[in-house]
Structure formats: C-alpha cells, structure tokens
Design a protein around this nucleic acid. Structure first.
Lengths: 207, 207, 207, 207
DNA sequence: GATGAATGAGGGTTCATTCAT
DNA sequence: GATGAATGAACCCTCATTCAT
C-alpha cells in the first residue's frame, strides 16, 4: 500500500531516525534524505511534520530529553532525611546515567556542544529546559550535604559543575572514543567518579 | 625578500585562520573562502598548500596541540621527589590550563569530539599524539602519589580520566556556554576541581 | 439534501476561490492547497472537478467573463437611433466598467496578459470569446458614429483599440498600483477618458 | 578554454538573457538555469553576480529602463517655445515608442504589472525610477499646452494617465497578442492615438 | 606563485499530484 | 464523494574545487 495511516506515529519515527543520525554524524553532515530513508519515508514527507532541518533538531532535543528529566526529577523527589548526602549524590549520578547516559540520549550533549555556535537559540533552549533543571537537582543534593555538615561549604554553582563535568564527559567519550578504536567502559569510571566526589566533597574529618 | 618569508609563513597563516573559524563555527559551516580571506589570500591559494578542506582540518588539529604538549612535558619533567603529589597534580592541571585551556587551542577538543565520526582517522591521530601523551603525564603524577602513599590505590587508566574529565569539560564549556548567554568562569571552577580531586584521591587517613 | 446542492456548487466555489487567488498572486504563486482551503475543501478534492491546476486556470478565465459579456451585449443591444454616438460610447464604457471593471473580474486581463505566453491556447480562447465580442460591441458604436457623421472616418479595428486601451489599463492599474502604495481612482480617470475620446473622435466641426 | 576573462561583460549578458526570458515566460516560469544557458554560463555563475533571482529581476529593471529614460529626458528637454503643444505631445509619444516601445524593453511593463503583487518592493522601485519620471515628462507637455491655451484645462495627474494608457497598452499588446495568433501593428495604432489625443485634449474652438 | 572566474555536484525545500482509506 | 498522507520531480541556491590567466 502506498501509505498506511500513521500520522500519529510519524513524528516519533522521524525524530528517532534524526537522533541516531545527528548523534552519529553531526547536524550538518546529516542529510534530510538520510533521515527520511531511515524513518521509512521520502524527504518530502519530513516537511509535513517539521518546517525544516533545524526544527527537527529542536524537536529531537525537546521530545527526547525533557521527558527523561521529568522522570528523573520525580524519582529523586522522594528521598527522606534518612538518606545520607553521599548516598543521595550517588543516587543522582546513577539515575542520570541509567535514564540518559546508558541510552541513545547520551549522544545529545555532543550535538549541542558542537552546534552551539551555529544554533545559539537551540543551545539556549537546551540550557533552559535541560541543563538548568539538572543543575537544580544536583544543587539540592549538595545543599543538603552542606546543611547536614557532610559536605564542606562551597559555592553551589561551582560545585554543581564539578559534579556534572565527569558525567557529561562520560557521555561524550562514549560517543567519540569508539571512533578511534578505543573502548570506553562507563561503569568502573563512574564508580571511581562517585568515590572521588564523595570523598572530595566531604567535610574534613575533625581530628 | 619579504615574499620568501611570506611563502614559508603561508601554511601557518592558513592554519591559524582555519583554527579560528573551525573553532567558532565547526567544520562544515566554515567556508574555504572565509579561511582564505582571513589568511589574506584567495581561495585558490589554499590549494597550493593543502589538497582540500579535510586536509586543512587535519593539519589544524595535528599542528596545533602537539607543540604545546611538548612544552608541557618539558615543564613537568623536572619535578623532584620533594614535591608532594597534591602539588604535582595541581601543577599539571594549572599548566594544562595555562598552555592550552586559556588559549584558542581550547577549542580543539570540541572540534575533535564533534567530528570524530566523520574523521575517525583524525580522531585516532589526536588520541595517539595528544590524549595518550597527556594521559601519560597525568598517569605519572597519580602513580607517584600512590607510590608515596598520598593517593589511595586505584586503577590508573580510570583515575586518569577522572582527572581529565573536569579539565576537558572546562574547555568545552568555555566555547559552548557563551553561545547561550551564560558566562563560564574557569578560575573558581578549576580551584574547586583541584581541591576536590586532591581530597578525593587522597588515601584515607588512618584513624 | 444539502450535499447534493453542495456537489453541484463545488466547481463554482472552486473557481471562485481560484479567481481571487490567481488575481491576487498570479498563476504560479497560487498553491492548490490555498485554493482548496478557500473553497472549503481539501487539495485532493480539487482533482475530482479539474484535472490539474492549468485546467482550473483555464476554467476560471473561461467561465468568469463570458456571462458578463452576455449581459453587457444584451443591455447595449436595445439602443435606438435616438441616442447620439457620444452617448452610446459613454454608455458602453460605463457599462463595461460597472459589469467588469468595478468587480473582481477586473483582475482577469492582468492574468491573461501575464500568462499569454505560457497558455497560448487560453489566450486565443480569451481573444475569441471575450475580446472579439467586446470589440464588436465597440466597433458597432463607432460605425454608428461615423455613419451619423458624428465621428470622423477612421479604420474601425484601430479605433476600437484606441477606445479599449484606456479602459483595460484602468483594470490593470487597479490591480497593480495599490501594490506600490499608489492609489488609483477610476472615476475621475474614466470621466476624462470619455471626454477625451468623445472629443477626440468627433468629426471636425465644419467652420 | 574554461573561462575567458569577461567579468565585466557578464552582468550585462546575464541581464540580457534574463530580460528575454522574463518577458517571454514571466518571472516564476523562468528558471535560473535557462537564464544561465542563454547567457552562456552555468547556473552557479549567476550567483557570483546576483544574490538571487529577485535581484536579477531588479537589476533588469534598473539597468535597462533607467538609461533609456535618461536619454528620453535629455532629448525632450530642448524644445523651445516655438513648438506647439500638439507637436510636443506627439514628439513625446513617438520618442517613447522609439526608445522603449519598439525595443525589447517594451516587455517590462508586462512583467512589472504581472509581478507587482509578488514583488511589491520592485513595483515601488519601478514606479519611482521609471513611471514617476515618465509622468513628469508628460505632465510638462500638458501643462505647457494648457498654459498656451492649446489644451483645455484639466487635472494634470489624470490627463497624464489618459495619455500613458494607450502607449502602455501598445507595449502590452505587442507582447501578448502574438501569443494568440493576432498581429498587432503599432504604427497605425499610435497614429490614431496621437490624432485622438491631440484633438481630444484641445481647447474647444471658440465659435 | 597567486588569482578569481567558472564549474557542477549536491543539499534543502516546495508543491502539484496521487491514491489508500 | 472526500480526505490528507505521501510522493517525487523540480527548483533555487551553496560552495569545494579547478584551471586559464
């Protein structure tokens, strides 16, 4: 048959294909026809759902990361005062990795970083919708640790980045190291990251 | 004669211009004519020195970081057994930032990460010539710390990445955060990184 | 049932919508979907009534002017020998303007002139069905004037064009001048046209 | 040879080709490649000289009509008070026809009228650069005639249009009538136009 | 050695048209 | 009879690359 009624499924299939290709080849090197073929349609069809390539790019970010963030926020909102800050921090990082880092979505940071200068509006959108919310989550964990005396006092926004950096890097490495024949094992790396951060942020033990 | 000097200087001027543009706009969005104009020549001239755009890209990556690494290695080769591992680690990170992070060269990691899949051969080259040497430098500092009992025992190649991650991220943020109106201040961030790493890697004090 | 009526009304509604759009934007710039939307149907439906865009265009031209011409001919057929040629000429021009010039149909000459080379067959049809009949009408008025000695002798087919030109131009200006911010007032213009023609065609008064 | 140094000749050749095609087929129906082929280059080359199709359109109007208008103005600026207004009017019309109507440039009005709605800016430019100057020329002739008592008093801007209409129509007919197998002979038509206008505008002879 | 005019392949996008539902 | 999702052929335009000068 020429077409089956999948109007509702199409946008998702398109974004799915686009995410794979953007992540694999970058924005500019991804051709509309490639996206179309992978989504099982022809190039013209893409334009029924998205005005142009850039809109697809934006939709990919919007539709894929934001829901994961919602879920992450919900999962982490329920911790009680019985959890130690160290446990909370570990939980945040491991949840982050499970929901995003271990999935295809881990390719998005690479995309956003690489294309930030060509699509500043997109970078801003990503910052507002994804980064700021994520940083808030992490910020709360640190605040909690400092308040409890578990973590030493420090500037919140700086500490947040100290924690984000190794996780974001893990996502980037996951997508760039295999290209040069190197393998990247996230697990031992993340274990060590968590250990180092927990110990590194800890309030110095009173003698 | 001035031209002779000019002729010999050309390749460097071209790579100089190309680095600026690649870093600012990415590989695909950088036009040959833009490179030419910025290098003070016309498009045709580029082809006297480089076979095509990809070769310029590769040359930029190849030529730019290696000399800095040479200098870095030399600077750090002279430390004596009197330096503490913590001091050494700080010195490594601060030197890294001074020689690379604080300069235009900080834009290269973004490029390599973004284009790793389109230029796997180049990614491999960069890994061998830059990353591996850098990791070796850092590995030596960790080894030294472990041997002295200052740092707790850990898998070297993992620890190396734990240290690299926040510094590389600083370079990436420096080039992507301004695009979304956010400012990134490397100094307080690096201070905190160093503090956290030093404390986080330290051997736990015997009670 | 309403649909039956609807079905019979459809072609007219389509041509109605198409006329508006063709006149406003030209043939090429008018999209099938725009026509459909304005006619209250979807694009696919147009093809139940017309084989393609060209056929719609042709139908628009064909169907729109001819009925008006019929009416015009009828109105003007009844003049008696008591009317002066000058009066008759004025009546022809004013009727022409009232039935066509003052309506949407005034946009058609622009269309036909612009697309004559792309649709020669249509141009020929328009000439035969519209222009020639119109010219005949005017020709009769002139003949009448010459026969009565009111108008000086002249070549009929030339005189006809001398009379048509200012009226056709009025229709063209009406549709092109507003686009450049100029307003076109047909009434004073037509008054002056009539005055000039009546005096200009008059047999020179015997001294 | 691959290319001969004709940088200076190219723009003219391109506009030449474009004018022919625009006049023959309209703006939208003229393909960039057609223009290129007729100008003896490839499509890409057009973009070295003009940013896009619309710019070519604008350049065609600008470069072709304006110089003719300059010449026309100069030719007509030298008439003395000895010339009768009738002679002057005839001279204006015949000069207009000789410099524009009898040449390829006679195709431009059709273009402008047809595309006025799609390119309002262009229509405005044409009005300012061409029409207004032309109307001024004609306005002066009428004023002169009224001042001398040769022409009857009338609103200048209306009279100007009464005179322009038949000449512009001649240019339009010249380009649209051949498409429907009809031939248009400008000479007898213009003779009659002039005769009618001169007589039609004349002050009525005192008895 | 340098220029820059010209090429031509290829990408993004549009839209008349088709046809399964 | 009507729909509207999908197609695919063009078209405009870009730009890396070439090569006569």
């Amino acid at each position: 048959m020429r077409w089956t009624r999948r109007k509702e499924a199409r946008p998702g299939e398109i974004l799915d294909a686009a995410l794979d290709l953007f992540v694999a080849k970058g924005f500019a090197a991804t051709k509309m026809e490639d996206i179309a073929r992978r989504a099982g349609v022809t190039a013209g069809t893409l334009y029924r759902y998205y005005a142009n390539k850039e809109e697809i790019f934006k939709a990919v970010i919007r539709e894929s990361l934001v829901p994961q963030l919602d879920e992450g926020e919900q999962l982490l909102s329920g911790f009680t005062g019985q959890t130690s800050a160290a446990e909370l921090l570990e939980m945040v990082i491991r949840t982050w990795w499970r929901l995003i880092g271990a999935t295809r979505l881990s390719g998005i940071p690479k995309l956003v970083i690489a294309e930030a200068s060509n699509f500043p509006e997109l970078a801003r959108y990503h910052r507002e919708q994804v980064i700021e919310r994520g940083e808030k989550l992490i910020g709360r964990a640190i605040e909690y640790g400092i308040a409890r005396g578990e973590f030493r006092p420090m500037r919140l926004e700086v500490a947040v980045r100290v924690i984000c950096a190794p996780v974001v890097m893990a996502m980037l490495w996951k997508h760039s190291m295999p290209q040069c024949g190197e393998e990247f094992e996230p697990e031992p790396y993340l274990d060590e990251v968590i250990r180092t951060l927990v110990q590194g942020l800890a309030a110095t033990p009173s003698p």
